[in-house]
């Protein structure tokens, strides 16, 4: 479905040049859920943004269904791949009602039965028609993220790029959104690429994942391996340990981790 090879992303020029992604390669099968894990500055979100055209592809290949993507991406691309952003407070237009937010993609792509599609989209993400004319400030964080998911799904894409979809939410709301995402994937046969700093979230939603650090892929592993604590790379190992909570017994030398 999606094939990324030696992807490079470079921002700026000259002295201000930043190599956000140095080298990343992975392959995602149709219907699969793939995870990208790393800390801030690892370039995991930039990979997503490069796939959908929000960041430049400076080197390497991004292929969707075997075809190299074009810049700028065409409308057909956006009907295939959609994205959900991290912060539901920033990803909805503050002056647009839910109705307007959901009807915009339909209007852009000239979809006819907007009325039924909007109501259906709301139903799919577990919200009733009473939410249709609300403004974002009348919604909770979890409800906003559901609207963002509904917006991404309303064009019936095959691939959903999820950029930390639950990290701005409370734990109990996170559980609801994760369940919803899993449910939708099974029902619609979607392909996910999930970016997160939280190993547990990635392991919950994905079968395979790529650990990234400083713009490079460190290792590709499976969530089963993570669960059993197997990691060939010491950095992955330290991420696993840190995700278990604070521990007084094993003080690590600070210099090995901070960069």
């Amino acid at each position: 479905m999606l094939d990324i090879q030696n992807l490079q992303v470079i921002f700026g020029t000259g002295r201000l040049q930043v190599q956000a992604v140095k080298n990343a390669s992975f392959h995602v099968e149709a219907g699969e859920s793939y995870g990208l894990v790393g800390e801030s500055g690892s370039g995991k979100s930039t990979v997503l943004r490069a796939i959908c055209g929000l960041a430049p592809i400076s080197g390497g290949h991004v292929r969707v269904d075997g075809k190299e993507v074009t810049t700028p991406r065409g409308k057909a691309f956006y009907r295939t791949i959609q994205m959900v952003f991290q912060d539901p407070y920033a990803s909805l237009h503050p002056r647009h009602t839910v109705d307007r937010t959901l009807s915009e993609p339909l209007a852009i792509h000239g979809v006819k039965d907007a009325e039924t599609r909007i109501l259906q989209a709301l139903r799919e993400v577990g919200l009733g028609p009473s939410f249709r004319f609300r403004y974002p400030h009348q919604l909770s964080g979890g409800q906003r993220q559901r609207i963002a998911i509904a917006r991404a799904l309303i064009l019936r894409p095959k691939v959903l790029l999820l950029d930390e979809p639950t990290s701005a939410l409370d734990a109990s709301v996170q559980a609801e959104v994760l369940n919803l995402l899993e449910d939708l994937r099974h029902k619609m046969g979607l392909t996910y690429i999930l970016v997160s700093h939280d190993l547990a979230v990635v392991a919950h939603l994905c079968q395979r994942l790529l650990v990234m650090r400083n713009g490079e892929s460190i290792e590709e592993t499976t969530s089963a391996a993570l669960r059993s604590g197997q990691a060939s790379n010491s950095y992955t190992q330290s991420l696993i340990e840190a995700s278990q909570g604070f521990s007084r017994d094993a003080p690590q030398p600070a210099s090995s981790l901070a960069t």
Partner: peptide, 17 residues
Amino acid sequence: NSDFIAAVKLQGASTPR
């Protein structure tokens, strides 16, 4: 550079739109 502008870009909206 906000996410909601990025989101509408990803829906294929034209620049004037």
